[in-house]
């Protein structure tokens, strides 16, 4: 059983390898990665493309299994204990991944329907989340009729609607223009804080990671933590600048060794 003091996410020496296309060799995406994330924390994971951020993300989400080591989410194995995590993890992907045959409202209702929620209640919850994200009046629009920002809002509403304990976000705002991304970022952080969620936020933008994270972890390839910094609203501008410079240095080393 997981107690309040136990970490929500714990990686112990986790490695993940994939066979190369020729089948003769393996590619190491994650190498002996260890970290812990506490309840209510927002952790931003930063790193260059191909550094294994998404592999780590998929392990936490239970979409893939570690080759070695142990990954635990609230003390359980996210890959093998499939049913246990029903309704406990919400994911916002890089692209909206809305079902084109469902309206905005029906897309938000998807997770609730999977959880067998009362249809009336599910409808109300979905409407409520769409309204909260500024999409009232668009309930019956199909995804193709919505802008990129609106679609991503629907996908955020879909993740929040099931009221998960943990939110995983894989570069959710990278395809949006800066203004829309900034607004959504602010909304996202507000929603996570208000609802006391634990969140892992993957990004490749230093500014975004520092805006969102209580903690920033920088990955080197293959995914292992090369740098870590804690941030809060009380972190001064000078310290933020230092953190930013340190991250830049770490990332440039990764580039040089790539």
């Amino acid at each position: 059983m997981n107690t309040a003091a136990d970490p929500v996410i714990r990686f112990t020496e986790v490695s993940k390898t994939f066979p190369r296309t020729d089948g003769k060799d393996v590619f190491t995406a994650v190498d002996k990665l260890s970290f812990e994330i506490a309840k209510g924390e927002i952790v931003a994971v930063l790193g260059k493309t191909g550094c294994g951020k998404s592999t780590m993300f998929n392990i936490v989400a239970g979409l893939i299994e570690p080759s070695e080591g142990q990954a635990r989410v609230v003390g359980h194995n996210p890959f093998s204990e499939f049913d246990f995590f029903r309704g406990k993890i919400g994911i916002v992907f890089q692209n909206d991944r809305l079902m084109p045959w469902r309206t905005a409202l029906e897309n938000v209702m998807l997770g609730l329907q999977v959880l067998n929620a009362d249809p009336k209640q599910a409808l109300e919850t979905a409407r409520g989340w769409l309204a909260r994200l500024g999409l009232s009046g668009h309930e019956n629009d199909y995804p193709h009729a919505l802008s990129g920002g609106m679609r991503q809002r629907v996908s955020i509403a879909r993740a929040f609607a099931v009221n998960p304990d943990i939110l995983l976000c894989d570069e959710p705002f990278s395809a949006l223009d800066e203004m829309t991304a900034r607004d959504l970022r602010a909304e996202f952080v507000k929603l996570v804080r208000q609802n006391n969620k634990t969140a892992v936020f993957i990004t490749h933008q230093i500014g975004e990671a520092m805006d969102i994270g209580d903690r920033v972890m920088v990955f080197h390839r293959p995914a292992r933590i090369a740098y870590e910094a804690r941030l809060s609203s009380e972190t001064g501008e000078a310290e933020r600048t230092k953190v930013r410079d340190d991250i830049m240095k770490v990332l440039s080393v990764d580039q040089a060794t790539a």
Binding site: A61, D83, R86, I91, R97, L110, V114
Partner: peptide
Amino acid sequence: DLFEMTMSFRPSRWT
């Protein structure tokens, strides 16, 4: 993408 998204909600086979 849609398969992984749906699987993230951990549906039963029938769902």
